[in-house]
Amino acid sequence: MPQFLIVHDVKVYPETQDDWIGLWRKLRERAHGEAEWLHSFFEPSTGKLYCEWEAPDVDSILSCLSEEVLDLAPVSSTSEVVLFDVTWLDNQES
């Protein structure tokens, strides 16, 4: 399955812990099926959220993102990416 990196610019931050958890839970519930949300990395200094997804195409990821999510954290870029796991180097034959 292709992997994607979706970058969001966080425009509005949750005011409370419950707001934060509620938003992430809702997204998590929508992100099961064809497109699966794997990990996120947040960069506090820029407010960018880097989300790793596995999906057949980028449209199936975007369909998981509700209007609420896109208002709070619009997508600034989408990239199809390939994983290179550095631990592979530990098992290489010389």
Binding site: E15, Q17, P44
Partner: peptide, 14 residues
């Protein structure tokens, strides 16, 4: 449990 401005907390995660 966190009672306070979560946005401030997230912007200051480090």
């Amino acid at each position: 449990r966190v009672d306070g401005n979560m946005g401030y907390m997230l912007r200051n995660v480090p």
